[in-house]
C-alpha cells in the first residue's frame, strides 16, 4: 500500500453544546480517490476545513504529508482582479516559477478566452473553474474538494473527472466531499459522514445513490 499522505486522528469539533465531529479518524494513501458523502448539516464542510487547516478542531490532529490543495465550496476569489492576475497572485503564494501548468488547466477546463476578464464579470460556472484551478495549479500531494462540480455543465463535469483521474495517476490523493456523489464507481473508497464519524459505504448503497444521481444529472443536462 502506498504511503499515507493524509491522516486525521480522533477529530472532535464542538460548537457550544453541539458536537459536529465526534472522534472521527480517517487516513488515505497517495494516489487514492476518496469520496465523503453526508446529508446537509452533517459537518462535511467543517471536516474539510479542519483537514485543510482552516479551522481548529476541539480535539484531535491532522497530518498532511506534502503540499495541500483546497477548493472551498463557495468560490473565494477577488472580483477586482482578472483570471490571469489570479494565476500570477497564486503563483507567488505557492512559490512557483511559472504558471505553465495553471495555463494548461485553464485550457483543459475551456475558459482561456476569459484570461483578461475581471472575475466579477465571469459567470458562476467560470468562477468555479477558476476556484478549482487555484487549488490544483501547484500539483498538490493532497487535494481537498468541497462540492467541486457545483455550477459545472456536463462537459466541464466530464473534464473534471478527467483531471481527477490524471491527478490520481500522478500520485495525488484526491478527497471529494459532497452531499451527493455521482459516478461512485470512480472512487477507490466512499465514506458516509454520519453522527460525527465516517462510515465506509457499501457498494449496494453506492449503486442506489449513483443511479439516482445519474438520473438527476441527465435531467439537468
Amino acid at each position: 500500500m502506498a504511503d499515507t499522505v493524509i491522516q486525521a486522528e480522533e477529530l472532535v469539533k464542538r460548537y457550544g453544546r453541539r458536537t459536529v465531529l465526534d472522534g472521527l479518524s480517517f487516513s488515505a494513501p497517495a494516489g487514492a480517490l476518496i469520496g465523503i458523502v453526508g446529508e446537509n448539516g452533517a459537518g462535511k464542510s467543517t471536516l474539510l476545513k479542519i483537514l485543510a487547516g482552516a479551522l481548529r478542531p476541539t480535539h484531535g490532529q491532522v497530518r498532511i504529508h506534502g503540499s495541500l490543495g483546497y477548493c472551498p465550496q463557495q468560490v473565494i476569489l477577488n472580483e477586482s482582479l482578472t483570471v490571469a492576475q489570479h494565476l500570477d497572485y497564486f503563483r507567488a503564494a505557492y512559490h512557483l516559477a511559472d504558471t505553465v501548468y495553471a495555463d494548461a488547466l485553464i485550457e483543459r477546463l475551456a475558459y482561456g478566452q476569459y484570461r483578461a476578464t475581471p472575475v466579477g464579470a465571469l459567470s458562476g460556472g467560470t468562477q468555479q473553474k477558476l476556484n478549482l484551478t487555484l487549488a490544483l495549479m501547484h500539483r498538490p500531494s493532497v487535494l481537498l474538494l468541497d462540492e467541486p462540480y457545483q455550477g459545472f455543465d456536463w462537459e466541464t463535469y466530464l473534464r473534471f473527472w478527467g483531471l481527477a483521474s490524471e491527478l490520481r495517476s500522478q500520485g495525488c490523493c484526491v478527497v471529494v466531499i459532497s452531499h451527493l456523489l455521482f459516478d461512485q464507481q470512480r472512487f477507490d473508497a466512499i465514506y458516509q459522514l454520519r453522527q460525527g464519524r465516517l462510515h465506509p459505504q457499501t457498494v449496494a448503497a453506492a449503486d442506489i445513490t449513483n443511479a439516482t444521481g445519474s438520473a438527476a444529472l441527465q435531467e439537468v443536462h
Binding site: 487547516g53 482552516a54 481548529r56 480535539h59 484531535g60 490532529q61 491532522v62 497530518r63 498532511i64
Partner: peptide, 12 residues
Amino acid sequence: RAWHSQRLAHAA
C-alpha cells in the same frame, strides 16, 4: 493564521 506548520501537520 493556519493551524498547522509547514503543511506537514496541524493539531489542536
